[in-house]
């Protein structure tokens, strides 16, 4: 009995320490809720980090040659290294064109009251999937498709224009499937700008063009850079439409086709891994360059008031 007060004190001290540790962890943003991150973390480790590291290691164990044999092979064979240029030639213009189309449409949609309807229509292609779009375009843009037939009927063309099974078929398909994504991102950046800023510009003498170039554009440019990166990465990984709508043996032999052929036609997983790594490096280089340039832009709040 006589030791009871002492026991109580010890217990209290222990409790104090425990509470202190928990408080210290909470201060660093670690508490019970942090555990909810675990499943996602495991999934990322199992489905992304491990395969990536496995592929990276595999790419350094070529069927023939030294550690860098695959990379040496890739960069000495024009049939392989040309795919970088072929892919860039598709992905770059498509991404830029999508942005150029998305900005004015977003600027207009932002002012509309029936925004949701139009947005739904514009976003619909994303639900169709690349294959369906490719099939549709094969019919629509093909030599016997409506597009050619209408233009010939109207007397604008004497014979059908070849728009499928070449560069332009893939271009059109990428544009259609990529636009909704680009548009939605752009719309969110454009609507984030306080309309009072434009009004202030107008009252103080800026024409519509000046309001765009001096107020809107500088404020959405950082967002457009992010949009560019995401849309570009999507376009760079083009595969189904390059096969279905393009000329996979020549003009639209994109880098993912090269990787596919290495893996499943030549059964050289090591080379396929190396090609995938090159693909990743090219994407990373472009994204890093764009984000680097973005770092030089104004990136503060886009509202006119103190937040």
């Amino acid at each position: 009995m006589s030791s009871a007060p002492l026991d109580g004190m010890v217990a209290a001290a222990g409790l104090d320490e425990r509470v202190a540790l928990r408080t210290r962890l909470a201060a660093r943003g670690l508490d019970g809720t942090t555990l909810f991150v675990l499943p996602a973390l495991l999934a990322i480790l199992a489905l992304f980090v491990y395969p990536f590291l496995y592929g990276l290691a595999l790419s350094f164990r070529p069927k023939a040659g030294g550690v860098l044999g695959n990379y040496a092979h890739f960069f000495s064979d024009p049939f392989l290294y040309d795919t970088i240029w072929t892919t860039l030639r598709l992905a770059m213009p498509v991404t830029i064109l999508n942005l150029v189309l998305a900005v004015p449409i977003a600027m207009r949609v932002r002012l509309m009251r029936r925004q949701r309807l139009l947005t739904t229509i514009l976003v619909l292609p994303v639900t169709l999937g690349t294959v369906l779009v490719a099939e549709g375009l094969l019919n629509y843009l093909g030599p016997q498709g409506w597009f050619n037939r209408t233009l010939i009927w109207a007397g604008l063309l004497s014979g059908p224009v070849k728009l499928t099974n070449n560069y332009w078929g893939v271009f059109a398909s990428l544009l259609i499937t990529g636009f909704p994504f680009t548009f939605l991102l752009t719309l969110s950046y454009v609507t984030g700008i306080d309309p009072a800023l434009e009004q202030a510009g107008a009252v103080h003498g800026a024409s519509a063009r000046q309001r765009f170039t001096r107020i809107i554009l500088p404020l959405i440019l950082p967002g457009l850079a992010i949009t560019f990166c995401l849309s570009f990465v999507q376009a760079f990984a083009v595969f189904p439409s390059a096969v279905l709508l393009g000329a996979p043996a020549g003009p639209t032999r994109v880098i993912s086709i090269a990787a596919y052929q290495a893996a499943f036609e030549e059964y050289d997983y090591s080379l396929a891994s190396a090609i995938a790594m090159v693909m990743g490096a090219v994407q990373l280089a472009i994204v890093a360059a764009v984000l680097g340039a973005r770092g030089m832009l104004y990136r503060g709040p886009v509202g006119g008031t103190k937040g």
Partner: peptide, 9 residues
């Protein structure tokens, strides 16, 4: 303007 509407950039 009520919200000041200064150009933040």
């Amino acid at each position: 303007f009520q919200s000041y509407a200064l150009f933040p950039h």
